[in-house]
């Protein structure tokens, strides 16, 4: 489905486990890394490869919050608004991002550049407030730091 390199990687991952089904979460990550999200075609392909039903794969995808069921923005901003971050100003940070990007939490800018979501604790409470921008953590944020960071993105 995604080419030979992908299928070789799939075989290697499946071989790590005594039961093929155990590879499911890792295979979904491989799909998301390549496609940017997990589409239904990929779910069906994985189901066949692992010998489980497409419904099982879809049920798994929808259970975990990190699998994207639609494409996100080029820059996907996940703001931690848990208690420790709240105590250090994450609600202001969220307000600032919504104003600056002109979107509400859960939305993507019309040009597809930014998407913004609120997430639960990311384990960065000692460096709050923070967000995860695609894979990377940005910590000890101030509104000025956020503006500088976003200004620098193309």
């Amino acid at each position: 489905m995604l080419g030979q390199e992908f299928e070789a990687k799939v075989d290697e991952i499946v071989s790590r486990y005594p039961e093929p089904k155990a590879a499911l979460l890792m295979l979904l990550w491989e799909v998301q890394e390549r496609k940017g999200w997990v589409d239904l075609e990929s779910e069906v392909w994985i189901a066949e490869r692992l010998g489980v039903s497409p419904a099982h794969v879809h049920g798994t995808v929808t259970f975990y919050t990190m699998y994207k069921q639609k494409p996100s923005g080029k820059y996907h901003i996940q703001v931690c608004t848990g208690l420790s971050c709240m105590l250090r100003g994450s609600d202001n940070l969220m307000d600032h991002l919504e104003k600056r990007l002109g979107i509400k939490e859960g939305e993507t800018t019309p040009d597809g550049k930014f998407s913004l979501i609120r997430v639960e604790c990311l384990g960065s409470c000692g460096t709050a407030p923070m967000f995860q921008l695609n894979d990377d953590y940005h910590e000890d944020l101030t509104l000025e730091k956020v503006d500088r960071l976003l200004d620098g993105l193309d």
Partner: peptide, 11 residues
């Protein structure tokens, strides 16, 4: 799977 809010030691 360190996820308890307020916890960041295993990281």
């Amino acid at each position: 799977d360190e996820s308890e809010p307020g916890t960041f030691k295993d990281r």
